[in-house]
Computed example of a mutant assay.
Amino acid sequence: MTQTLTPTTSAPAPTPDFARAVLENVARVLVGKEAVTRLALAGVLAGGHVLLEDAPGTGKTMLARALAVSLGLDFQRVQFTPDLLPGDVTGVSVFRPQSGTFEFVPGPVFTGVLLADEINRATPRTQSALLEAMGEGQVTESGVTRPLPAPFVVIATQNPIENEGTYRLPEAQLDRFLLRLSVGYPTHEEEVRMLARLQTQHPIATLGAVTTPAALLDA
């Protein structure tokens, strides 16, 4: 059962303090990405979705994961490929012979943060499965409309360099994104700091939440 969160009645924490705690937590994982992290968090606070457009290996996926963990949101990742179907994202109704009825099996879109990895590699039909979810916060399947949890954020990635086997995002899809950001490669000094952090394990493995979904809605 999907639980819809509503803002709490208690006084919310000041937004600058809220943002500072999240940014400092994400910086434990991402080195030298304070500017793009700040913009991505601003998009989330504005209730929008974020498109990260950059070459592989720049930390796009890690930024999405670190934000989701820091905000205390559930996280789902979908690798968009040409054979991905709309139902693989939104969910499908499955017939249960024992009861003789159809049961809806939610897809990965029913989460707090959905990472649409390499979104431009899926067909336009599958890309369009996100239009209703991103625009209205709901999914309609077999004539039944189901609300998504709140907050709900889509962070999509795409590689702007390689165009073979990709499908350009239409304007209707791009319009659903509030921000289109580039992460960028680290400097030499930042790479050295990254290697030092990775001596034992990846920092994302020990990263914890610094806030809650309800506090995010308040902010």
Rank of each mutant, 00 (worst) to 15 (best):
G100L: 12
F75Y: 13
V154C: 13
L131C: 11
D74V: 10
A209N: 04
P149V: 04
T200M: 05
G32T: 07
T9C: 07
T157W: 07
L130C: 08
G165M: 12
G32K: 01
N120L: 01
M62V: 00
R197H: 08
A116W: 13
A21W: 04
M62C: 05
L115W: 07
Q199H: 11
T90L: 10
V139F: 02
P108L: 09
E103V: 06
P106H: 04
G107H: 06
F75S: 06
H188T: 15
V92Q: 12
G143H: 08
L71A: 03
Q76P: 13
V50C: 09
R146Q: 14
M1R: 09
A156W: 01
G112I: 04
R77M: 11
V29T: 03
A172V: 02
T6G: 03
H202K: 09
P124R: 03
T37H: 03
G107N: 03
T145S: 11
G57H: 06
P16C: 07
G32H: 05
H188E: 14
A129F: 11
V29I: 12
D218P: 10
R28P: 07
V183G: 00
Q76V: 09
G184N: 11
T6A: 10
A219N: 06
R197Y: 04
G112R: 00
D74M: 09
T81L: 01
N159E: 14
V154P: 05
M194A: 01
L178C: 01
Y185G: 03
P56V: 12
L217K: 01
D54A: 09
S182W: 07
P108W: 05
V94C: 02
V78S: 04
H202Y: 10
E162R: 10
V69C: 10
L30C: 09
E24I: 03
R193I: 06
G57N: 09
G59A: 14
